[in-house]
Amino acid sequence: MRRADRLFQIVQYLRGGRLVTAAQLAEKLEVTPRTIYRDVADLVGSGVPIEGEAGVGYLMRDGYDLPPLMFTSDEIVSLVAGARLIRAFGGARMAAAAEEALIKINAVLPETARARSEAVRVHAINGQETDHVLRARIDQVERAANDHILLDMQYADEDQRPSERRVRPLGLWFWGKVWTMVCWCELRQDFRMFRLDRIENLIEAGKFKPKPGQTLRDYYRRDSFHD
């Protein structure tokens, strides 16, 4: 964990006037109590109203909030453009979450940064509106890859030849026009990539444990893959 992230987490743990010891913070953040002592001292020095001392515990007075998020102009453009791309081409839950994230970010941006966000000229237009079935499928595959859930599917290849597969989903790729799922195919005992718009049916089939040689890291090591 980066030190900046650790300092942020310390502030979060101390919210609400709770007394928290250095040992408790160290356990949560997987560092030594000595590191916590230094971090708290630096936070106090920067104006964060933390009270207490080593060996007793720390607490933070109610009412303190973190400074507003600060993004560069290029970062704002990237966030807004990315959210618009997901809104146009991503899963239904992804699109809603991206929109909500932008609302939250805009709510805490300084006025000048908010104006830059609202003035971004990058837009995403889906000429062939992504249908609700495909949007749901994108969300389902993303969740299955994250939670290690096996998927049973009926698939039709480019020549419309059908097959039934059980796969271990590893990730999603967007190619500008189509979404594909990279996975470990139980039938072929190898990595495969499938277009989501060619999947006829997709059913969850229980959890799986990642195995050496069948992970996304292993996939990246491969020189090529097969459809």
Rank of each mutant, 00 (worst) to 15 (best):
S78L: 12
A113W: 00
A156S: 04
C185Q: 00
G47K: 05
L172C: 13
H148F: 13
I149L: 09
N126R: 10
A113K: 00
F174Y: 13
K207C: 01
D62K: 15
A96M: 08
G176D: 03
M193A: 10
C185H: 02
F8D: 05
I105Q: 07
A83H: 03
Q12Y: 07
L150S: 14
E111I: 12
G17T: 02
R38E: 02
D74N: 11
L150W: 13
V11Y: 06
L134Q: 05
S78P: 06
K28A: 08
R6A: 01
K177A: 15
A113C: 03
A145Y: 07
V77G: 11
D39G: 01
L196G: 00
D74C: 14
Q154G: 14
F191R: 00
I36G: 02
E186G: 02
Q154T: 14
R143V: 09
G57N: 05
R84Y: 01
R84H: 05
I36A: 04
V20Q: 13
Q214Y: 00
M193N: 08
R38S: 01
D147W: 14
F174E: 10
A144L: 10
G176R: 04
T130F: 01
E158S: 07
A4V: 14
H132C: 10
F225R: 12
N201R: 12
T180G: 12
V108E: 05
E204C: 09
G206S: 10
R116C: 01
V80R: 00
V11Q: 13
